[in-house]
């Protein structure tokens, strides 16, 4: 099995790469962080008997993506699975954020993901099933004031993946959307989850479980995977509550959590 992973030097990307390594899959990893890519490649090769190839790439830059694709074509590397992990968010309300950073959320989470998915579908291994995984978020299920751009970008992925899944079914392609709530990937995310209090704790899913089940779900042909019972319950209930009411509740929760988080950030720094 040959797997292509974007955002492979970050927390979820690394966990998915570890999971693929433990299953003996060969991997092509990309991330904007070249040093991080080198280290995860080292770690994977030392742990598992797998072939890992890396190429640093800014997925929001078409030239950078073309260069990376040229590497794949030069070596004739073809794939059975693509894990679209690369994504970003920046804390703070819409008007408090830098304009270019807001645009970057859409450029990376959406435009770059489409670019990679399209390119990799053209580079699938012939005669074998192909899996695409999009990393969306529980945030895609609700309107999310104070995380409006991020949540909308994740909603885009969910809608797009659902439609693409139907479109590509005849070509033996499975499309899975992962919709996790919080996951502890870094010390910063741990602080963020703590700042959310009870709801942060009950919706947080173990990273290693999410990684394992994501690959299981992709191989089993599932369409959407929302980790955690509480997250599944929230996404189910969300369908019956007026969206304007959800927005008001979410605003109160995030307003409080972000202030607490930023305060903790100031104390830490």
């Amino acid at each position: 099995m040959n797997v292509f992973i974007t955002g492979a030097a970050g927390g979820l990307g690394r966990a998915l790469a570890n999971e693929c390594g433990s299953r003996g899959y060969n991997m092509f990893l990309t991330d904007i962080n070249e040093a991080g890519l080198f280290r995860i490649k080292q770690g994977l090769e030392r742990q598992f008997n797998v072939t890992v190839t890396t190429k640093a790439c800014d997925l929001t830059n078409p030239h950078s993506v073309d260069k990376m694709l040229a590497v794949l074509d030069t070596h004739g590397i073809r794939f059975d699975m693509v894990l679209n992990v690369a994504g970003c968010d920046f804390e703070g309300g819409f008007l408090e954020r830098d304009r270019e950073k807001l645009v970057k959320i859409v450029l990376l989470n959406n435009a770059a993901t489409l670019r990679i998915t399209h390119a990799l579908l053209k580079r699938r291994r012939q005669g074998r099933p192909f899996s695409i995984v999009f990393v969306s978020s529980l945030a895609s299920m609700f309107p999310m004031p104070l995380k409006a751009t991020y949540a909308a970008s994740k909603r885009f992925l969910l809608e797009f993946a659902t439609a693409l899944r139907q479109e590509l079914r005849k070509d033996d392609v499975n499309v899975l959307t992962l919709c996790p709530a919080g996951m502890v990937t870094t010390e910063e995310t741990l602080c963020g989850i703590k700042a959310q209090g009870f709801w942060g704790n009950v919706t947080t899913a173990p990273l290693e479980d999410v990684a394992r089940r994501t690959i299981d779900c992709a191989l089993a042909g599932k369409g959407v995977y929302t980790p955690g019972l509480m997250s599944r319950l929230l996404s189910f209930l969300g369908k019956f509550v007026p969206r304007s009411f959800v927005a008001a509740v979410v605003y109160r929760r995030w307003h409080h959590a972000q202030r607490k988080w930023m305060r903790a950030d100031i104390i830490r720094s």
């Binding site: 030097a9 927390g11 690394r14 966990a15 790469a17 570890n18 390594g21 991080g36 280290r39 995860i40 080292q42 770690g43 994977l44 030392r46 742990q47 502890v184 990937t185 870094t186 741990l190 947080t204 173990p206 990273l207 290693e208």
Partner: peptide, 11 residues
Amino acid sequence: RSWYMTTEEGY
């Protein structure tokens, strides 16, 4: 560590 977290090498 309360949660499974990894280093840069994925350890």
